[in-house]
């Protein structure tokens, strides 16, 4: 069996597109729940629209993950690090799925609409209820912090591989002829 050391072009595209959207969304989300600025209303509308986009992208990403082959970590990576990498990846995928769904659910539970750039509106998932709202509102916030932690670990590890180990792990997600 031929071993591969790079992700497919489709995997790279979706990885970097989602990285951009997710970081923007997390930082926007944290800002907009605190800020009293005039851009608040537009920020929430954008957050909802890009949230729908992120939900669609994660579905495509999961399909892409099944149909493409991911490069394995080099054998030089210690077992504990490989396990940590695996758990971080599980955490990242769980966050990617739960973030938009908890957001959609909390909006439904407060009787609010989630619109995609004004083009269409998502159906309501649950009926209006303050306790349901509380659960998903808190979940949305907690998952956001967990997500940031996973991203921080993921970015730190990727840079460690790229700068210190130079073992091709970082290069596997970069276009071009990196090793």
């Amino acid at each position: 069996m031929k071993t591969i050391n790079k992700y497919s072009a489709s995997s790279m595209l979706i990885h970097w597109a989602m990285a951009l959207i997710i970081l923007s969304m997390l930082f926007l989300g944290l800002s907009m729940v605190q800020s009293l600025a005039v851009w608040q209303i537009e920020a929430i509308a954008l957050h909802k629209s890009f949230g729908i986009l992120a939900l669609v992208l994660v579905a495509i990403r999961l399909i892409n993950k099944v149909v493409t082959t991911s490069p394995a970590l080099p054998p030089s990576v210690p077992k504990a690090q490989a396990l940590a990498a695996h758990l971080t990846q599980v955490g990242l995928y769980a966050s990617m799925i739960l973030m938009p769904i908890s957001g959609w659910l909390m909006q439904s539970a407060d009787g609010r609409h989630v619109s995609f750039f004004g083009l269409f509106t998502l159906p309501s998932l649950v009926s209006k209820d303050i306790e349901t709202y509380a659960f998903f509102r808190e979940a949305h916030g907690l998952i956001a912090y967990a997500f940031l932690l996973f991203i921080f670990m993921h970015v730190s590890a990727a840079l460690y591989h790229g700068l210190i180990k130079q073992d091709g792990v970082l290069g596997s997600m970069l276009p071009g002829k990196h090793k």
Partner: peptide, 23 residues
């Protein structure tokens, strides 16, 4: 109106706190 536009975030914070307490 900057006051109007600030009302949403403030109401949401108040609602979030009491919703959590109710839960």
């Amino acid at each position: 109106d900057p006051i109007l536009r600030a009302r949403g975030a403030a109401y949401a914070e108040s609602f979030r706190r009491r919703a959590k307490e109710v839960l």
